[in-house]
Design a protein around this nucleic acid. Structure first.
Lengths: 147, 147
DNA sequence: CGATTAGATCAGAGAAGCTGACGGTATTCC
DNA sequence: GGAATACCGTCAGCTTCTCTGATCTAATCG
């Protein structure tokens, strides 16, 4: 687990760029005024689907308990990023969906991500960038239970 | 940030296999008796260099404050994974290095990681697995300030 | 209908991260 | 050499996040 170049753990190799992407997106969003959202909240928020998501599903996808997800969604709701509406198909459930402020931050985050991906593509070359995404999509088949 | 297959954020794509690798390694270690180490502790412990590391360096590499790193190292020390010794080259500093129990867990974790990487290679093919690592190493050049 | 399952919440606790401030040691600069 | 500065680690206090366990209501199944 030390530092010989070729022997470095593939997990760590995946983590490094992921973390850097996350850090830069959050820093940039904060500087644009979205400074009332945390990393953990963002990880859950990312999973909110277009038509709304159930709390339990969000928890599963983010790999946290539904209680933790509820805690984070409460904060996102207070800050105006999401809203909870009744699920018309199941009276036990409520749907979490993006509120207006949430939709704006989604659009801005997408811009920022696109900019960073462009930087990466410039460094790697378009060929390797495309290969990276293709291989990661295939890897997802065996590593994402909620694909 | 939603779910169209081709548009999925590259950061998320990196995160999925990373998280799965981490989860499996920790689950397997726990089942082998190393159940007194947490994810956060592991993330710092991974960075402890062969000859010992300074707390400040570990914090920088793990991207947490030195106070947080100190907290985690305290726990790792109590559990017998690391020990702190004076730094012979600087009386202000102490070196954190692996204790015997720590060296054993490093060896076992390496085995587990190798097994998972073999699974991934079997799914992707050796060619794509090698490409993945090669591309990630190049990506590290612009995403790891502590490479 | 009654029993079980599923969605969400409440309550309490522990882990882990942060900022700010401090004492001790090195280094740098006059 | 001495003063100013920077660095290493720690203490103190707080917030955020995550967990386990229990509870409530609604849906579903026999």
């Amino acid at each position: 687990m030390a530092d010989e170049e070729p022997g470095i753990n593939t997990g760590v190799l995946l983590f490094i760029p992921y973390r850097e992407m996350e850090r830069r997106v959050f820093a940039e969003l904060a500087s644009r005024g979205y400074d009332d959202i945390t990393l953990s909240q963002g990880r859950v928020f990312q999973r909110v689907a277009e038509g709304g998501s159930r709390l339990t599903d969000l928890a599963e996808q983010a790999r946290i308990t539904k209680q933790s997800a509820g805690f984070l969604i409460d904060r996102l709701e207070e800050a105006g990023y999401v809203e909870r509406v009744p699920d018309p198909t199941d009276a036990r459930a409520r749907l979490v969906r993006a509120a207006p402020r949430g939709r704006r931050v989604i659009a801005e985050a997408a811009e920022i991500v696109a900019g960073i991906e462009a930087e990466w593509a410039a460094h790697l070359g378009d060929r390797d960038m495309a290969d990276l995404r293709r291989i990661l999509l295939r890897l997802r088949e065996i590593t994402d239970p909620y694909a």
